[in-house]
Structure formats: structure tokens, C-alpha cells
Computed example of a mutant assay.
Amino acid sequence: MRRADRLFQIVQILRNKRLVTAKALAERLEVSERTIYRDIQDLSLSGVPIEGEAGVGYRLRHTLDIPPIMFSLDEIEALVVGARMAKTWAGTELGYSAQSALDKITAVIPAELRDKIEDSKLFSLRFTPRRDLDVNLDICRKAIDAKRLLRLCYCRADGEQSLRSIRPLGLYFWGNVWTLVGWCELRDDFRNFRLDRIQNIEPDSATFTDVEGQSLQDFVKRMTCI
């Protein structure tokens, strides 16, 4: 858990107005009591009105007014279906992050909206989950962010396989298929690769920089002119 997330969680726990010991906070957040003491001190110095002391417990003063995050019912539904789609289709890491984000929102919204999240009847299903697709998606997403070359073995629809070195530029979701668009070193041009046809994929140690005429923006311009 990132430190910023932990500080947020501490504030939410202390909002119940009951004394909470550093030991209880440490156990819940899976850190040491020493870490909790440092976090409490930093929160206090930043202006969060925490009262209490080591060995007794901590709580927020009643004067603290943290307004709840307000959403309409439609916005809540949109967040729920978005998180559920990410959990189903967006890879392992983004799936966990989507649920974590939804948990944070649930913790600070009014009870009636919290019930809407729990009772939502909107679902996202994938009947043939494939672990390799989730792994491929996670690898591609990280490579795009880091501008890292990818080496992959790709199988075309006719069964022909080829080894490619590409500059990954973007990922597109087409309803039930993800495609990776990149600049292919072999073809010296843009190419789209279906993630479910990638037999093997490895990030290279080499990185790349954007080249005029070979960026994602250039790809989009070309597609809009077709």
C-alpha cells in the first residue's frame, strides 16, 4: 500500500470518533506501530485535527468536517460498471486497482449511495477467462508507459508465426478483444496485434523515444483519413 493511501485510510478509520490505538491501526494496515506514530505526527503537522496520545489511542476531534463525496445515482452506477468491467477485462493489476478505488469511494459516501453500490444489478462477464491475456495486457500497459520495446511471437489468423520487435503505442478494446498498436521494426510501419494471438511476449531492456510520423497521434491521424 502506498503511503498516501495509508494516510487516507487512517483518517477514514479515525472518523468514527472512537479511540483507536496505534496497535490496532498497525494491525489493520499491516505496518509497524512506529510507522503509525510517524503517520499520525505527519497528519497532525499537515493540519488534520487528531487528538490522543501513544498508549491511549487517537481520534479526530468532533470539529473536523470532512464533506462526503457526492455522486448521483447514475454516477454511482457508472463507477460500479466501470470497475466491474476493469476487473473482468483490463488485466490483473488494473482489476485490483479498480476494486481498491471502489472500496475507497464506498468508505466516504453516504449510506444510501453505499447501498446502491452493493445492490447494483449491472455485471460484466467473461466466460472464457485466460490468464495469459491478463498477463499480456499488464506487460503491454507497462511497456507503453515506460516506452520500452517489446519482443513478441505473433500468430496470424492463418497460423503463420513471426517474431516481432515493436514500439508499443496504445491499447484498444473492441468489446471482447484487445489489440496493441505499435510501430513494427520488421515491417517499418504501424501494425495492430491481437493480444489473444500473441504466443510469447517479453519487454526489452531498450527504450524508445517518439519519432515524427511514428507516434500514436500519427497512427490516429492515418486511421481517420482512411
Results as ranks from 00 to 15, higher is better:
M1A: 15
R3G: 01
R6E: 08
F8C: 12
V20I: 14
A24D: 14
L29K: 01
V31L: 05
T35G: 01
D42C: 02
D42Y: 07
D42K: 08
L43I: 02
L45S: 11
S46L: 11
V48L: 08
E51L: 05
G55Y: 01
G55D: 06
Y58T: 09
R59T: 05
R61P: 00
H62R: 13
H62V: 13
I69E: 03
I76F: 02
I76N: 00
L79H: 02
V80I: 06
G82E: 05
R84T: 04
E93N: 11
A101F: 09
K104T: 01
K104V: 07
T106C: 12
I109W: 02
E112M: 08
E112D: 15
K116M: 11
E118I: 09
E118N: 09
K121Y: 00
S124I: 00
T128V: 12
R131P: 03
L133D: 06
I139V: 04
K147S: 15
C153P: 00
E160Y: 07
R167H: 08
Y172P: 00
F173S: 09
G175P: 04
W178H: 14
E185M: 12
E185I: 11
F190T: 00
S205Q: 06
A206Y: 06
T209N: 13
V211T: 10
E212I: 12
Q214S: 09
Q217E: 15
R222P: 05
M223H: 12
M223R: 15
T224Y: 01
I226L: 15
